[in-house]
Simulated scan of single mutants.
Amino acid sequence: MSGIGMYILFLAPTLILGLAAQWWLKKTFATNAELGVQSGMTGEEVARRILDANGLHGVPVNPSPGGPLSDHYDPRSRGVFLSEPVFAGRSIAAAAVAAHEVGHAIQHDKAYAPMQIRSTMFPAVAFASSTWIFLLMAGAFMNALGLIQVAIALYAIAVLFHFVTLPVEFDASKRAQVQLAGLGLVSDSERTGTRRVLTAAAMTYVVGALAALSQLLYFVLAYLQD
């Protein structure tokens, strides 16, 4: 099989799954963004309510400088950042996403082990992610197996990071569901919508991890097999 054929064989399935996961997330978010929560609270208010209920009064909730779906928790500044549709939205989708990001803040406060491992790995992953492709191209151009091996090893670190991220994201969603229900921020009927939004978001991380693993396997077979 040609190199291009092997690459397509390894990457095409995960590419299709990735596109499907992104479509599902956008569709699920859009559907639930049109459904208002009975509490009438914005995503900012939901986040603030959960943070205060968990004693995290010093963690700010700020608008995210990015576009839609740029919501995140920054462990360096210890701040929750919400995109405009979530920050100001009064929908099931906004409540779900806001609660998920606060879930990361709670993880940080509780010293959740997978999150600590992820944070410890981040500097190495940042270096590996910005370096491996240049080493791989240089190694392939010069036919230098040593450079190729280093490049693939660096990429393997980035792949591992994807899989370490999975329990962090799943746990944040679990915490979000518990907080939303326990504090009465969503009704029983609205919990179905929040669960769907969080599940769709989680699937993008799963597919991303599988895609990274598939590419790693391709590189190993294409460059390192005898």
Rank of each mutant, 00 (worst) to 15 (best):
A95F: 03
P65N: 10
M115V: 04
G55Q: 12
W24D: 11
S130H: 14
Y223V: 07
P123F: 09
G193W: 01
Y205T: 01
E44N: 13
A124W: 06
K110F: 01
E44Q: 14
H108P: 00
I133P: 01
L147W: 10
F219L: 13
Y218P: 01
R49V: 14
K27T: 14
Q22D: 13
A212M: 05
L224I: 07
M203I: 08
V102E: 07
L216H: 01
V125F: 05
Q179K: 08
L147D: 07
L183I: 07
A126G: 09
G67A: 12
H108V: 00
M137G: 00
P65Y: 06
A47G: 12
F81G: 04
A158D: 03
L198K: 05
K110Y: 00
S119L: 12
A53S: 13
Y205P: 01
G55D: 06
L217D: 09
M115S: 02
M1S: 10
L19S: 07
V197L: 04
A113T: 06
D52I: 11
T42G: 06
S119W: 08
G43F: 02
S77Y: 00
T131A: 14
S130A: 14
R90S: 11
R48D: 02
V150L: 15
V164H: 01
H57E: 11
A99M: 07
E190K: 12
T192M: 06
T14S: 08
Y205K: 03
A124S: 11
F134E: 08
A176G: 09
A201P: 08
A95D: 05
N32Y: 15
G40R: 14
L9R: 10
A156W: 11
L210Q: 06
E190S: 09
T14G: 03
H108I: 02
A201E: 07
I16P: 02
K27A: 14
A124Y: 06
R118M: 04
S83G: 13
S214A: 15
V197Q: 02
F163D: 02
M203D: 00
P167C: 04
F29Y: 11
F127P: 02
I16C: 04
A151G: 10
R118N: 07
P167I: 00
V178R: 10
V86D: 09
M115T: 02
L213D: 06
G139W: 10
S64H: 13
V168T: 08
L15Y: 00
A153H: 04
M121E: 07
K174N: 13
Q22A: 13
Y73W: 03
S173N: 08
Q38K: 15
Q149W: 02
A138M: 15
A140N: 06
R78C: 04
A181T: 08
T120R: 11
S130R: 15
Q22W: 10
K27Q: 12
A151I: 05
R175A: 04
G58T: 01
E84M: 14
G58M: 03
H100R: 02
A21I: 03
H108A: 11
